[in-house]
Amino acid sequence: MMQAPEFSADLYREISEFAHGTPSWVHTVAEIGTDAGLLLFAALFVAGWWRARGADGRVMGLALAAPFAVVAAYLVSEVSKTFIEEERPCRAVAGAMNIAECPAPGDWSFPSNHATIAAASAAAIVVAWRAMAPVVLPLALLMAFSRVFVGVHYPHDVAAGFVLGCVAAPVVAVVLARVAAPLVDALRGVAVGVALLGPRPVAGVPGAAVPGGAVPTGAPVGVAGEPAAGRQVDAAVTMPDVMGGVVPRREPRP
């Protein structure tokens, strides 16, 4: 059975004693905060899926892989706990001042499952939706810290769980996305797949951004294939003419 490092036990005492002296409403927020945060992450998984509808197969693959990556990180954490067998500080530390109820014996402490899930959720979301990093990463840190604050984990438990989640989830998400991308493209060929995953991206739409700086199909082209910036397109050239590959000949003005 693993024994907690002395420095972590000392830090646990300081944090839990500070927490015990805070108002009761802070205790309530800290106890329900972890579960509420997990619900928010679940909502962001759904938002990420919706955002990826119509994007390319890899983007949708990353969005779909996010919850599976979290489950994978959790399983690694749970299996590790059964081998390491570190007792909870609310039982092992003399005079522990835990706010939350101490988990039952046999529910081991290292690493923290809650910290692993919070970090894995945040990391998987960031991999699929980078703009959410300033929101989800601080939230995951706060959720992890709350487990020490309420007195059910040592600081090193949540630190290890956080690192585990941040490492395992992105790796699993990227691997799953590679497998899922061709499947996403194939499913978009049927009606049910289009309803769930959105239509396939349309290449060459006028005005759409094209990777690599290429000129979108239908955009005015000048000398040497460069875009004709600032030039007015001849009104006689209609969209059916361009799409048919026939550019009407411009008559000389009298």
Rank of each mutant, 00 (worst) to 15 (best):
V46D: 09
V148S: 07
H153K: 00
G225H: 07
D185H: 07
F45L: 07
G189Q: 14
F162M: 02
A30C: 08
V184C: 06
K81A: 02
G212V: 01
M97W: 02
G245T: 05
V26P: 02
V70A: 02
G54S: 05
L11V: 08
F68R: 01
V192K: 05
P111S: 08
L142S: 09
P248H: 06
V71N: 10
G198F: 04
V29P: 00
E6I: 07
V126T: 13
M2L: 12
E85F: 06
S121R: 04
A191N: 07
A118L: 01
R249Q: 09
A131G: 09
D35Y: 11
S16Q: 08
K81I: 03
A104V: 13
P252R: 13
V79T: 14
S112W: 03
V71M: 11
D157A: 02
G244I: 04
A186R: 15
A168I: 15
L137A: 15
L139T: 05
E14W: 10
S146Y: 00
A63G: 03
L40A: 13
P182S: 00
M2Q: 12
L38Q: 12
L187A: 14
A69H: 09
P201G: 10
R53H: 06
G106K: 02
A140Y: 03
G193V: 05
L139W: 09
A47T: 09
G245R: 04
V246P: 03
V172Q: 06
L38V: 05
S109K: 03
V29D: 06
S80E: 07
W108N: 01
G225Q: 09
V79Q: 13
R51F: 00
S80F: 11
P211Q: 08
V29M: 14
T217F: 10
V93W: 05
I99R: 06
P67I: 07
L75P: 06
P248E: 07
Y12K: 04
L139G: 09
V171W: 13
V163M: 08
M143W: 01
L196Q: 02
L39D: 09
V79W: 11
R253S: 14
P227Y: 03
V190W: 11
R88E: 07
V152Q: 03
A209E: 15
P227D: 04
G198K: 06
Y74N: 13
A92P: 01
I32D: 12
W25R: 10
M132F: 11
V71G: 10
V194Q: 15
A4G: 09
V163K: 00
D157W: 01
E78W: 10
P220A: 04
